[in-house]
Lab assay of single mutants.
Amino acid sequence: KLNEKEKELCQMVRLVPGAYLEYKSALLNECNKQGGLRLAQARALIKIDVNKTRKIYDFLIREGYI
Rank of each mutant, 00 (worst) to 15 (best):
M12R: 14
E30I: 10
I48F: 10
A19E: 15
Q41D: 15
Y65S: 12
A19N: 10
C10F: 01
V13E: 12
N3F: 03
V13F: 08
L37M: 09
L15H: 02
Y57G: 04
C10I: 11
L37P: 06
L37N: 03
D49Y: 08
P17K: 04
N51D: 15
Q41M: 06
P17M: 00
Y57L: 09
C10A: 03
D49P: 13
Y65T: 12
V16Q: 15
C10M: 03
K33C: 06
Q11E: 12
N3E: 08
Y20I: 02
Q41V: 05
K24Q: 01
K55W: 06
N3D: 13
T53K: 08
L60W: 05
L15W: 00
C31Q: 07
L27A: 00
K7Y: 08
D58L: 03
I61H: 11
L15R: 00
N32S: 13
K1A: 09
L15P: 03
I56N: 02
E6H: 01
F59H: 04
A42F: 00
N29S: 12
K24I: 05
I48C: 14
L45T: 09
I61K: 13
I61Y: 10
Q41P: 01
L21D: 03
I46Y: 06
G64N: 08
G18D: 15
A40D: 15
L45Y: 05
R38G: 14
K55C: 12
L2G: 00
L45K: 08
Q41A: 10
L9Q: 01
N3A: 05
K47P: 15
K1M: 13
L37D: 06
Y57T: 05
Y57C: 05
I56P: 06
L2I: 07
I48Y: 11
K47G: 14
K33L: 11
G18N: 14
L2W: 05
V50R: 13
V16T: 15
A42D: 06
L28D: 02
A26H: 08
A44L: 01
L60A: 02
A26C: 12
R14T: 10
I46L: 15
K55G: 07
I56L: 09
L39M: 09
C10W: 02
K33D: 08
L27D: 03
N32F: 09
Y57P: 03
L27M: 11
E6Q: 00
P17I: 00
Y57R: 07
L45V: 11
I48V: 11
L28G: 04
K5T: 04
Y57S: 03
L37K: 06
D58C: 02
R62G: 09
M12G: 07
C31K: 04
G64W: 02
C31P: 03
L15S: 03
N32T: 12
N3R: 04
E6A: 03
Q11D: 13
N32P: 07
E6L: 04
Y23E: 00
D49G: 11
Y65F: 12
L15M: 12
D49N: 11
K24F: 01
N3Y: 00
A40I: 11
G18R: 14
G64F: 01
K5I: 00
G18A: 15
A19F: 02
F59P: 00
R62T: 11
S25P: 00
G18T: 13
Y65A: 13
D49R: 02
I56G: 01
Q11A: 12
A26L: 14
S25Y: 10
A26D: 02
E63F: 04
M12C: 11
K1E: 14
G36Y: 09
S25V: 07
I61R: 12
E22R: 13
L27Q: 03
E4V: 08
T53M: 10
I66R: 03
I46C: 12
K5Y: 02
E22P: 00
D49F: 10
E63V: 01
L9H: 03
E4S: 11
G35H: 04
V13N: 07
A40H: 10
C10E: 00
E22F: 06
E30C: 10
M12K: 14
K55P: 10
R14Q: 14
E22K: 12
E63K: 02
N32M: 13
E63Q: 04
K5A: 12
L45H: 05
G35I: 03
R38H: 13
C31E: 06
A19T: 11
F59L: 04
Y20M: 01
K24A: 00
L2N: 02
I66S: 04
R43G: 08
V13I: 14
K5E: 06
L9R: 00
Y57N: 07
V16F: 10
Q34T: 13
K24D: 01
L28R: 09
L9W: 01
E22G: 08
S25G: 08
A40W: 10
I46W: 06
K55S: 11
K24R: 06
T53F: 07
I56M: 05
Q41S: 08
Y65V: 15
K33F: 05
I61E: 11
I66M: 13
R62E: 13
L15T: 04
K5N: 06
R14E: 15
D49L: 11
E8P: 01
E30H: 09
L39H: 05
E4K: 10
E30W: 09
R14A: 10
L21C: 08
K1P: 04
R14V: 02
M12F: 02
Y65C: 11
F59S: 02
Y20T: 05
P17N: 02
R38C: 15
Q11G: 09
L21R: 04
E22T: 10
L39P: 09
F59C: 02
Y65K: 10
L21H: 04
A42P: 03
Y20E: 00
E30A: 14
I48L: 15
Y20G: 00
E4C: 05
C31I: 07
R62W: 01
I61T: 11
K47W: 03
I46Q: 06
Q11R: 14
A42M: 09
Q41L: 03
D49T: 11
L60T: 03
C31V: 08
R43I: 15
R14H: 15
A44F: 03
C31W: 09
E63H: 03
L21T: 06
E4L: 10
G36R: 06
I56A: 02
R43C: 15
K33Y: 12
K24M: 03
P17T: 01
E6Y: 06
I66T: 05
K47Q: 11
L9F: 15
G35V: 03
K24H: 02
F59Q: 00
N32V: 11
E8Y: 04
Y57V: 08
K55H: 12
M12V: 12
E22M: 09
G64S: 06
E63T: 04
E63R: 04
A44Q: 14
Q41N: 08
Q34D: 08
L60Y: 01
